[in-house]
């Protein structure tokens, strides 16, 4: 979970300006390859769904994004806690993929 939170923060800080670029960045960091179209759609849909739920207040963004004060102060200026939490969800999925975990 902590790793997913850190990856989400890194993605928002360094991953580019659009969600598409950020996805490529996060995906490559985990799998050292580019996502194909199906994978890209799956993950961007997840991001959008969870951004929606977070914005509606179903889940508290800071509960997902982490309580660490450093995280909060390191958040790039234009990024919102909702974005950070939604990206944490995506990062958690990426880090748990079989392809990420297994070498073969």
């Amino acid at each position: 979970m902590e790793a997913a939170q850190a990856l989400a923060l890194k993605t928002l800080r360094e991953g580019g300006a659009s969600d598409n670029e950020r996805l490529t960045y996060a995906f490559r960091r985990c799998l050292t390859r580019l996502p194909d179209q199906g994978e890209r759609e799956e993950l961007l849909n997840l991001l959008a769904r969870q951004e929606g739920r977070l914005a509606e207040g179903w889940v508290n963004p800071w509960d997902i994004a982490g309580f660490d004060q450093k995280l909060r102060s390191n958040l790039p200026g234009d990024a919102t806690p909702v974005q950070l939490a939604a990206w944490t969800t995506v990062a958690r999925v990426l880090l748990n993929l079989d392809e990420t975990i297994t070498k073969e």
């Binding site: 799956e42 997840l46 769904r49 969800t89 958690r92 993929l97 079989d98």
Partner: peptide, 24 residues
């Protein structure tokens, strides 16, 4: 589940993991 995460978020994440794993 990590604290603060509700069941729907958990299920949604697992569904994504499953679909991506199935693609692979």
């Amino acid at each position: 589940s990590p604290s603060g995460m509700d069941e729907e978020l958990q299920r949604d994440s697992l569904d994504s993991i499953r679909r991506l794993n199935e693609m692979h």
